[in-house]
């Protein structure tokens, strides 16, 4: 959600029950303004928070001129002092995929993971237990990246692609109509398209190249990994991810108000196939 309209955004997303306390809200409004100035972001998104056992991580993201360019991620424990996180890499993901359980709330906390590694000594092959230390900060980076790639959502038409390549905010976007708002096909993954190039020519023929340049949620796997609800008597559409429980996307049809927030434990719901 846009940091500038944070209060309205939080009100709209409050149906999932995860808000911010007044002091957090106030400090976010102040500190994110400064973040925008210091890091020279085009706009700042308040991304959400990851609940730790001891403390919570508050996450913000900075967007550059090109809206789809990799976003810079910052975290804070007290909503005032922000630190920049390194960009996520493949290695990080594989490294942290072994970590289970809750976040602690201490970025320097180290998870210990014992691994069996094969060690060659001459001709013999030993299996040796190696303890791998994984910093929580690394896990944080990786989890945020995974969530962003899997469930960051933006309504169709909110961004448009110029013929020269860069992607801009569509100022003429006036919200989805009510009938469109109920369809998953009207929402896109807010990331570089992955599935789009796998589409057949026939499927691509109907796409508008300036608007349909991202993957839609329609074909997400597993099917039914989104819960679409109309709240407040059809005045608000709320998408909740079941794959990453805690991610709430809201959009008031026919207005420009949209955004997503993640408030959760930072764990993927691997049980989803059993639960539907």
């Amino acid at each position: 959600m846009d940091a500038e309209s944070l209060l309205l955004a939080l009100e709209l997303a409050s149906g999932s029950g995860q808000g911010l306390s007044p002091d957090r809200r106030a400090s976010l409004l102040t500190s994110l303004m400064l973040v925008k100035r210091d890091y020279r972001f085009d706009r700042v998104l308040f991304w959400g928070r990851i609940l730790g056992l001891v403390a919570d991580y508050y996450i913000a993201q900075g967007v550059s001129e090109d809206q789809l360019a990799p976003r810079k991620t910052l975290y804070s424990l007290n909503c005032m002092e922000w630190s920049l996180l390194p960009p996520a890499t493949k290695e990080m993901e594989t490294q942290t995929s072994v970590v289970k359980g809750r976040f602690m709330g201490d970025p320097s906390h180290e998870y210990e993971h014992t691994e069996l590694q094969k060690v060659n000594e001459g001709e013999k092959v030993f299996e040796e237990e190696v303890v791998v230390q994984i910093k929580e900060e690394t896990r944080l980076v990786s989890v945020i990246d995974q969530i962003d790639k899997a469930v960051a959502v933006i309504p169709r038409g909110a961004l448009f692609k110029t013929p020269f390549g860069p992607i801009n905010v569509n100022r003429t976007f006036e919200g989805l109509s009510l009938s469109e708002a109920k369809k998953l096909s009207s929402y896109f993954h807010f990331r570089e398209p992955v599935e789009l190039k796998n589409k057949t020519l026939l499927e691509k023929a109907e796409l508008d190249p300036s608007l349909d340049f991202m993957d839609s949620l329609e074909h997400d796997i597993p099917k039914g990994s989104w819960s679409v609800q109309m709240e407040r008597g059809n005045a608000l559409v709320v998408l909740r991810s079941l794959l990453w429980p805690g991610l709430t996307f809201y959009h008031a049809p026919r207005t420009k108000n949209y955004g997503y927030i993640y408030v959760g434990t930072g764990e993927k719901n691997l049980d989803l196939p059993f639960m539907l």
Binding site: E11, G17, G19, S21, P22
Partner: peptide, 12 residues
Amino acid sequence: FEQAGVGLGTDE
């Protein structure tokens, strides 16, 4: 609960 950062919006 709002102080605690939980809860539905005031309106709801």
